[in-house]
Structure formats: C-alpha cells, structure tokens
Write a protein that binds this DNA or RNA. Structure first.
Lengths: 153, 153
DNA sequence: CAAGATTGAAAGCTCAATCTTG
DNA sequence: CAAGATTGAGCTTTCAATCTTG
C-alpha cells in the first residue's frame, strides 16, 4: 500500500493539473474569440491527417471525448462550414469528415491563441526535461486504453 | 514555435491519458459497487483533514471540480449520511462539512477498489522514476492555478 | 458592499437504442 | 447478424444570479 504512494500522488496531481489548466485554456480561447477547445482538437487532428480527413473511428482514437460527442462536434463543425463529410468508396457505412479551407482558416486564426494559452497555463511550469518525459510516459497509458490493443470481451 | 513541440505534445498526452484513465477507473468503481469517484475524492480529502472536516472553500482547492459542483456533491453525501455540515463559530457564512463514521466506512470499503483501478489503468504504465517526477512537475501547475497566488483583478 | 456558499438554467457529455450497410 | 455511425434521453457540470453574513 505504502509503495503505491507515489503512483497515487501522480494520479491526483494529473487530475488536478489537467482540469485546472484545461479550464484556463478554454477561458482564454473564448475570451479571444477563438474556436472552442473541443472544436480546435478535432480540426487539428483532421488537418494533420494524410488527406485532411479521417474516418470517425480514427478520429475518436485521437481526441479525449466519446464517440457520440465526436459525432455532435463534427455536426456542429459541418454547420459552421469548417468540415465536410465524404463517403468512403470501399465502405458505405463509414463517414469521413474532411476539414475545409474555411476550417483551416479558423484553425490558423485560433492556433496562436491556443499555443499561448497552453504555454501560459501549462507548459511554462514543466521543466524542459519533463516535457518529453511526460509525453512519453503517458503515451503508454494512452495505447493501453486504445481499442484493439486491449483484452476485450 | 517548433521549440514548443514537446510542450504541446505533453499537453495532448496529458489530456488523452487523463480522460481515458479516469473513465476506466469510474467504470471499475461502479462495477464493484464502490462510491462514485467524485464522492471518493471529496471524502478522501475530508478524511485526510485535521479534524476530518474542511471549509467548502478549502475543499474546492483540493479537488478537480468547480465550487458549485462541490456544493452538490456534499449535499448528496449528506443525504447519504456520509457527511455532516457544521457551522464555523468564527464565521457564520462558512459551511464546514465533516465526514461521518458511516462515510469513513464507505471510504474504507471503496479504497481497495479505487487503488486497484488506479494502478491497473494508470500507475502501472508509468515507470517508478516517472511517478514522483510527474507529481512534482504538476504540483507547479496546480499551485499556479490556485486562488491567492495568482495576479487576479 | 465584499465574501462564502447555494441554486436555477443551460450547456456538455455519455449510455444505450437505433439506423444503415457489409 | 456484426460494424460504423448517429440520435434520444438523461445525468453531470458549469456559469451567473441569488441568498446570507461579515
């Protein structure tokens, strides 16, 4: 039990730091007239993808919200003109959102706000050593919770 | 900008790892009939406090949810008999929840479930070196977002 | 009138059910 | 009948307004 202390401490620190920093970033983005953080995350992933598009399933594995939430965010982005849905030639079930020129423009405008907010509220407090270390450590947690790797019923 | 890469990578990894691990822990606790994670967090902090009690304001600085959310959680805990509210002799405005014997019992029962879930879904994937390092690094983020330290209008 | 705390209204998010296609 | 995705219903969380006390 006592041997778990540092593990539980890491857990609690992660919860607190993440929730506080996230709320601060969201506030900054709203105050600056940027897109909401949830929109930003989705558009960022689409923009980084090979053809500026991703199947919904792929998208879900890259962002921190549930499948149904992603559906609604993409619907909102589509209504805003930031995303268009394409069909997959090989699989009619799939829905493949792609970021539009307008969407890239919105992303471009929001990007400095996002980067500054993340730096101000989060990155600034981590030593340069810690940054890649944290990214790498958490990558292990993430893959463990990514469908396909797990022992699932 | 390129110099920020590791910082942003740390940000994204933290968001993903935290949200996935938290949902997994919540599922395990519910499946095992333990108290919800949000209840557990609040009761844990009350139990760790000097007199097994804490002013609402103090409590808010120790958990990862908003002031109003803590109000509602404490109300629910009170309804469940896990917490009682006391008045502060020196300040009639304050509300001072204290964990009851029943609450401590519930905490005791849920504790192994919580610890196992956190180990299984989170701690296990961090190297023993990383654990205290992450806790320490994020402590800086947390204090920066704790009222009183900040330059606030 | 400021500070501690609660509450009403609304937004965010998820689960389970559903729809569609392989 | 399984897999990809969306949707309806409902719980969770927050924001802003309110109530109470210093």
């Amino acid at each position: 039990m006592a041997a778990d202390d540092t593990g539980v401490a890491a857990w609690r620190a992660t919860q607190l730091a993440q929730s506080r920093a996230q709320r601060a970033v969201e506030r900054d983005m709203e105050a600056a007239g940027a897109v909401p953080l949830s929109w930003y995350d989705v558009m960022f992933e689409l923009n980084a993808a090979p053809q500026k598009r991703l199947r919904m399933q792929e998208l879900v594995t890259r962002v921190a919200v549930s499948r149904s939430r992603v559906s609604r965010i993409v619907a909102d982005l589509e209504a805003a003109g930031y995303v268009e849905r394409e069909a997959d030639r090989n699989d009619g079930r799939a829905s493949v959102p792609r970021i539009t020129a307008q969407g890239r423009e919105a992303l471009r405008r929001s990007s400095p706000v996002f980067l500054k907010a993340v730096r101000t509220h989060f990155v600034q407090y981590l030593s340069p050593d810690d940054r890649p270390r944290i990214a790498k450590a958490f990558a292990n947690v993430i893959v463990a919770h990514t469908p396909g790797d797990d022992t699932r019923p």
